[in-house]
Write a protein that binds this DNA or RNA. Structure first.
Lengths: 243, 243
DNA sequence: CTTGACCTTGACCCTGCGTCAACCTCCGAC
DNA sequence: GTCGGAGGTTGACGCAGGGTCAAGGTCAAG
């Protein structure tokens, strides 16, 4: 008679697996010898090979039992269902591979953000904006996309239009440099004035920005987000309503 | 400031998932308010969306952390590795589907056994051997294939050759019927004698069966297996050396 | 007699959360 | 003021399929 280790060797599974099958009720518990060791006969080898074969074919252990003693019609039906499950898993994994490939192509940004916003970030980098500021801008857009997904397309258009204006680009770069300034720095007041002027001109030109009404939470989060990174910017955004 | 439920809604994950990410250290634990509730700011939304994006792409949570803060070269390398893992999983599942399809085509037998033995079982069924005996024969071969895989091909050839002999087929059918006989039945002694005669003739013809030397364990298991199913057969196999 | 290989049960570890359980807290309605 | 219902909190168990200790009993050989 076989010990558990011999049984495992003969059938090509691990000792732990055999005991696991006992626990799951797939394999009958054999007699024990005087010292409490399990002693297996031929039937156990046969049963275990059947279990192993099904398990290696991807049949869930919870279905192995029914499958082994199933008459042909149920057997076929059960296999069809298992195959269906396997196909679904493969579809999921294939979709994951596509997403991973997207990530690899566009970095993380293209996947976190709608493409028109990723384009804005490309423009900012091309302008020479610091990576630190680009990241803050990006996070702002992630936030906006999460909180008010319906408005983000409009905002992105407005931002892109503003960035086409050389005066706005100058102001943006100035704000980038102002990041670390002391909130009491007199240059900051000057910059705030220039921002206000630009904003006023834009209003006159009829291209006023669409204000996000009814999104108090979104605006609050944006402001606290700015407050978290730069004192100077906080100061700026209190003086002029343009981030 | 957001509660955990609002954060979850905004980002499209479940509350349980957010807490899970805290446990895994992927998302920083935020401040608590006076009543112990978690209160989230904008950064949490940004971070959570990044985590969600990667997790949905099939990145294991254990790798999400490193991936989020990885510089581009490491980022790409990590993605390549993850893609490799995903491909391996898909290969496994595809292999499982093939095996499931094999199972569906040939029933369980074709997968548990080498094809030449499955063929033997087909012959037996065509002869009119009872399903009970076919199953015992099958289990015997499963056992043989597991215990002495190197010899099983030879034995299968010998068995197939024997089954081509009409006298052996008659004897086999007789043994099939003898399954339930009383071990003291005089017909059994008669059958044993016929078996011995056939065996002697085979020896004279020079087509003696190859004896499994050095496989005492295998023979013991076979014998106990026979003993477990039929007293009459046990009796037979003691009288004549042919199962 | 000791050593090393093998056996026993029991219990914790992995993934990615879902789903209780038991209790606390908030907010609007009465 | 108080009641209900919808939040929140921690803690624990569950899933598949075992891997990997831990602590100790058994066995054959040197």
């Amino acid at each position: 008679m076989l010990t558990i280790g011999q049984l495992a060797d003969y059938t090509g599974v691990t000792v732990r697996a055999v005991r696991h099958y006992h626990e799951r009720g797939l394999l009958a518990e054999p007699e024990r010898d005087a010292s409490g060791y399990r002693r297996y006969g031929a039937q156990a080898v046969v049963d275990l090979i059947q279990i192993k074969t099904l398990a290696e074919a991807g049949v869930p252990l919870s279905r192995v039992k029914e499958l082994i003693s199933a008459p042909p019609p149920e057997f076929s039906a059960a296999l069809a269902e298992i195959d269906h499950d396997l196909r679904a898993k493969i579809r999921d994994l294939t979709r994951h591979r596509r997403q991973i490939a997207d990530l690899a192509r566009g970095g993380t940004e293209r996947l976190f953000l709608p493409p028109e916003i990723a384009d804005i970030l490309v423009v900012l980098r091309a302008m020479g904006v610091s990576e630190r500021t680009v990241r803050i801008e990006r996070d702002g857009w992630i936030l906006a996309a999460a909180l008010t997904p319906e408005s983000v397309g409009v905002w992105a258009k407005e931002k892109a239009a503003a960035l086409a204006d050389p005066r706005f680009r100058d102001l943006y770069l100035a704000c980038d440099e102002a990041f670390d300034w002391d909130p009491a720095d007199p240059q900051l007041a000057d910059l705030a004035a220039r921002l206000a002027t630009w904003d006023a001109q834009r209003q006159l030109a009829g291209s006023a920005p669409s204000q996000p009404r009814g999104h108090a939470m979104a605006m609050t989060l944006m402001n606290t987000h700015i407050a978290a990174v730069s004192l100077a910017w906080t100061h700026l955004s209190e003086a002029a309503p343009e981030g």
